[in-house]
């Protein structure tokens, strides 16, 4: 196996995540759920409560921790610093790297960089790229490192990751056009459920993640997958944009509170 890491103590070659008997997992509110029934535990347009703490990593120029129930991630921003490669570039480079911790999913993720890391990084990069004023940072690189501590669905990681990255960039004092916030949605039956969990996405026929700068009304990223009618997709985008404005208030409040403490 080429992905064998000889510097680590590797576990057994084959291992399986534990499988619980039916009914053991009391937390599954969707065990007897059928299409057409209402959403469990919250209404369709509600998002999970968001906790945000900027500036908790001292050595980084800027950082942020975001927690929305079972999605927990931390983001650190280093830079702007001189680009390592010698080629002259007029605009700065924005470099986003995402890592899942080995214990972030139900099945253990090997600590080797795998396929999914990059796809999350690419989405977060797209979400924050239009907001950062890279034209002011020639010859420099801004590094954004995101560590996903707990994962509750890719869509949720895209959304929370973009929010955390934008807050961390603001915390680092890097010039931006506006704060980027992001919200995910899924089409379940004929309803739009905002901020779905991994379980809810498995029930959905399609999902959409929108990232925007609510202060300027500019959309920075649209990611959609699955089966959604064009009209429904537009409804999803509208619902997400409305919720992004609320998230914007939370982020700016958290940033302000952090700035006052210092």
């Amino acid at each position: 196996m080429s992905t064998f890491d000889r510097r680590r103590i590797n576990g057994p070659e084959e291992s399986y995540p534990p499988l619980f008997e039916d009914g053991h997992d009391v937390g599954d509110a969707y065990a007897n759920w059928k299409v057409g029934e209402p959403r469990q535990r919250r209404s369709a347009g509600d998002v999970r409560p968001i906790f945000m703490k900027p500036g908790l990593i001292n050595q980084a120029n800027g950082s942020a921790y975001v927690e929305t129930e079972k999605t927990k991630l931390v983001c650190a921003v280093y830079g702007p610093r001189q680009s390592r490669n010698t080629a002259y570039s007029e605009r700065g480079r924005l470099n986003v790297e995402v890592k899942f911790t080995p214990f972030s999913c139900t099945k253990r993720r090997a600590p080797i960089r795998d396929a999914e890391d990059r796809s999350v990084a690419v989405q977060i990069h797209q979400a924050i790229l239009p907001s950062v004023r890279l034209e002011l940072l020639p010859k420099s690189t801004v590094d954004v490192f995101i560590t996903i501590i707990e994962n509750d669905g890719l869509e949720s990681c895209y959304a929370s990751g973009a929010v955390a990255a934008s807050a961390a960039l603001a915390d680092a004092g890097i010039e931006m056009l506006g704060l980027v916030t992001s919200c995910s949605s899924s089409m379940v039956g004929k309803e739009i459920w905002l901020d779905p969990t991994e379980r809810e996405i498995s029930l959905a026929k399609g999902s959409l993640v929108l990232a925007c700068m609510p202060a300027l009304g500019i959309v920075t990223s649209v990611w959609q997958s699955g089966e959604v009618k064009p009209v429904e997709a537009i409804e999803c985008m509208e619902a997400c944009q409305e919720r992004c404005a609320d998230i914007h208030a939370i982020v700016s409040e958290a940033l302000l509170a952090n700035a006052k403490v210092i």
Binding site: L134, V219, Q224, K229, P230
Partner: peptide, 22 residues
């Protein structure tokens, strides 16, 4: 059936408003 969207992605650093996307 009616046509369905299977994927959409926005790529690049440009700016666009929601009304334009519609």
């Amino acid at each position: 059936e009616a046509p369905t969207l299977k994927a959409s992605r926005l790529l690049g650093p440009g700016e666009v408003e929601l009304s334009q996307i519609k």
